[in-house]
């Protein structure tokens, strides 16, 4: 795939930043308008698409890979994180919203994933980083989740059925509760899937091996085909959050 990634004069482009989503060429081809976030860019919207919010309410896929996130694990992690003011989910495979809008996902007894909010305004992750050091914080180990995993959001009422084409877990909303987490196989790659609705719109956050990002994106788009799913940008997500 040969892509002209030279941006139009004045327009924000992924190549302006060293940190680039594995999928940025696809977004450029699809006519994305980008906006800056956390030292990189994210798709704000696709120029040729109309009413992305409505699309997202039905079925849409968003690439959040450049947004910030981090992991902490280790026997000392639960206590240390609570000392830092984290409100941890009570049990593994649950997520919990923090005061600043970020989300803590408990992956096992002593492993946690921190996801920023959709505007990437949350500062909690950064504060954790500041207070952590290898020497002083015993038994707590950071994990580079912002780079090990790509991050997508699959939104809309058809999302559970679309997921059922590539995953053996039942994500229908009456079976898979809000803030529930599944670590499973999605289209034959390992993935963390959690439900984090946008107000009334079902939304599943998907994190998977970053090197498989394009493969998984294509597999999801293929699964979404029969429900007329499409890629959308962040603006649509924010619209649905406030609706």
């Amino acid at each position: 795939m040969k892509v002209n990634t030279t941006p139009e004069a004045g327009a924000l482009a992924p190549t302006h930043y060293p940190r680039r989503s594995q999928l940025y060429r696809q977004h450029v081809i699809a006519g994305a308008r980008f906006e800056e976030v956390a030292g990189s860019v994210v798709v704000a919207e696709y120029i040729d698409k109309t009413d992305e919010a409505q699309q997202a309410a039905k079925l849409a896929l968003v690439d959040l890979s450049t947004l910030s996130r981090v992991g902490f694990k280790g026997a000392g992690a639960p206590d240390w994180l609570e000392e830092q003011g984290a409100r941890l989910p009570d049990s593994p495979n649950r997520a919990r919203r923090q005061g600043d809008g970020s989300l803590i996902v408990r992956l096992s007894t002593d492993e946690f994933l921190f996801l920023c909010d959709l505007t990437s305004d949350s500062t909690f992750t950064a504060r954790l980083w500041d207070s952590w050091s290898f020497q002083s914080t015993k038994g707590v180990y950071p994990l580079p989740r912002a780079d090990s995993h790509c991050w997508f959001a699959l939104t809309g009422v058809h999302a559970p059925t679309a997921l059922a084409k590539i995953c053996g877990i039942d994500f229908h909303t009456h079976r898979f509760s809000k803030s529930e987490v599944a670590q499973t196989s999605l289209a034959r790659v390992s993935a963390i899937i959690l439900r984090d609705d946008l107000a009334t719109t079902p939304c599943f956050l998907i994190l998977s091996d970053v090197s498989s990002a394009e493969y998984l994106w294509d597999a999801l788009m293929d699964a979404m085909l029969e429900f007329q799913g499409d890629a959308v940008g962040m603006v649509a997500l924010r619209t649905l959050t406030t609706n």
Binding site: K2, A187, R188, Y215, A219
Partner: peptide
């Protein structure tokens, strides 16, 4: 069914192609 052959690419993949 659909052919799911996971493919892994490095971040420099397209530079190699180019």
């Amino acid at each position: 069914g659909r052919s799911f052959y996971p493919a892994r690419r490095s971040n420099m993949h397209y530079r190699h192609l180019e």
